[in-house]
Simulated scan of single mutants.
Amino acid sequence: MLKNIGVIGLWAIVFLNCTTHAQLIEDQQQVSVTENLRYYLYFPEPYEAEPEKEFGLLLFLHGGGESGANLDEIKKNGPPKLLAEGKQFPFLVLAPQNPHKKKFWNIQAVNQLLDSVVSRYRIDPQRIYLSGLSRGGSAAWDMAVQYPNKFAALAVVCGMAPVPYAHWLDKNMPIWVFHGADDPIISVSESDAMVAKLKEMGYDVQYNRYEGVGHDSWTKAFTTEALYSWLNEQKRAD
């Protein structure tokens, strides 16, 4: 009997110990996330010639294939490719590089970079445009959702779309979506569903759905000259 009582007593002590550690304890601590972002920044020719003028800025987020540590990789597609070929834009272009080959964009870090660039140069905060392709297109949707009061216009190419949060987007921000109908990587249904939802809610959205085009719909999208004049015309009402 004494031996059995001892075992029961020991079990009771262990049980009480577990109960104590299982309590819900309220606490808090400050955490910080840092990211090393390399980037290209393009200045239009009139920037130096017109020292009193503020300019618009396009934030461009590349796709997964250009991620990593070689900054020249981002010149393969989109506006950086056109700039490398000598194209001129009427606004600044900020093109950061996602340093992670197999991670999504850290949009909080990108937003901090954007704020830093805007504060350092003559940029009109009411004329900040956002665009991205593929993984960068997905990040562009996310940034527009998370920071709805920041962008004057949004252009997304073949990105995954956060349809359930479409109503978080600024209804006064015009949107232009591009996608290849035969995209095997990110299904065109992503853009189909997002555009349909936005139109249902009365958003200003236009859609280029390229029949017979796969994932590289960015080739046609970013050589659409009307895209850049459209961006340059936009300005936030607030």
Rank of each mutant, 00 (worst) to 15 (best):
E50Q: 15
I107C: 04
A139E: 00
N98D: 06
F89E: 03
M160P: 03
L133K: 03
L41C: 04
V110G: 03
E35T: 15
K171C: 00
E54L: 12
L154M: 05
H100C: 01
E225Q: 13
A153C: 02
P99F: 01
Q112G: 04
A196K: 14
Q28A: 12
F55W: 10
V33I: 13
H21V: 15
T20H: 10
W168K: 14
E48Q: 14
W11N: 11
K235G: 07
Y121G: 04
D72E: 15
I107E: 09
D204M: 09
W218C: 03
E35N: 13
G212W: 02
Y207L: 08
L83F: 04
G212F: 00
Y42G: 07
C18L: 13
G202M: 07
L231H: 01
S189I: 15
I123S: 02
K81L: 10
D27L: 08
A166G: 14
E50H: 06
T19M: 11
S138E: 12
S67V: 04
Q126Y: 11
Q112N: 09
E26W: 08
W11R: 13
Q146N: 10
L41V: 05
G63M: 04
S131W: 00
E200Y: 12
Y39V: 07
P162V: 07
L83C: 04
L94A: 01
L37R: 04
G6L: 14
A181G: 04
D124M: 07
K220Y: 15
I13G: 06
L114R: 08
S229Y: 06
R120F: 06
K76S: 13
D238Y: 14
I8D: 00
Q97M: 07
E66F: 06
Q88R: 15
S32I: 15
K103C: 08
K220E: 10
G202K: 07
N106E: 02
K171M: 01
D182K: 12
I5E: 07
G86N: 06
V156N: 02
S217A: 13
I175P: 05
R135K: 14
Q234D: 02
T224V: 10
G202N: 07
A22R: 13
I107D: 09
E85A: 14
W230H: 04
E45L: 11
V33H: 14
L82H: 11
E225M: 11
Q30W: 10
L227A: 00
V156I: 13
L58A: 00
A49P: 02
V14Q: 01
Q29V: 15
K197F: 09
P44Q: 05
Q88A: 10
H215F: 02
P162Y: 03
I175C: 07
L114E: 08
Y210W: 01
V93T: 05
V118H: 06
Y40W: 10
A181C: 05
H167A: 11
A181D: 14
D192E: 13
R236M: 14
M1S: 12
N77G: 00
N106L: 01
Y40C: 04
N70S: 09
S67E: 05
P79S: 05
E73N: 15
W105I: 00
G68W: 01
P184N: 03
A144F: 03
L16N: 11
V177I: 11
G132Y: 05
L227P: 02
V110Y: 03
A144Y: 03
V118I: 15
K76P: 11
G202F: 05
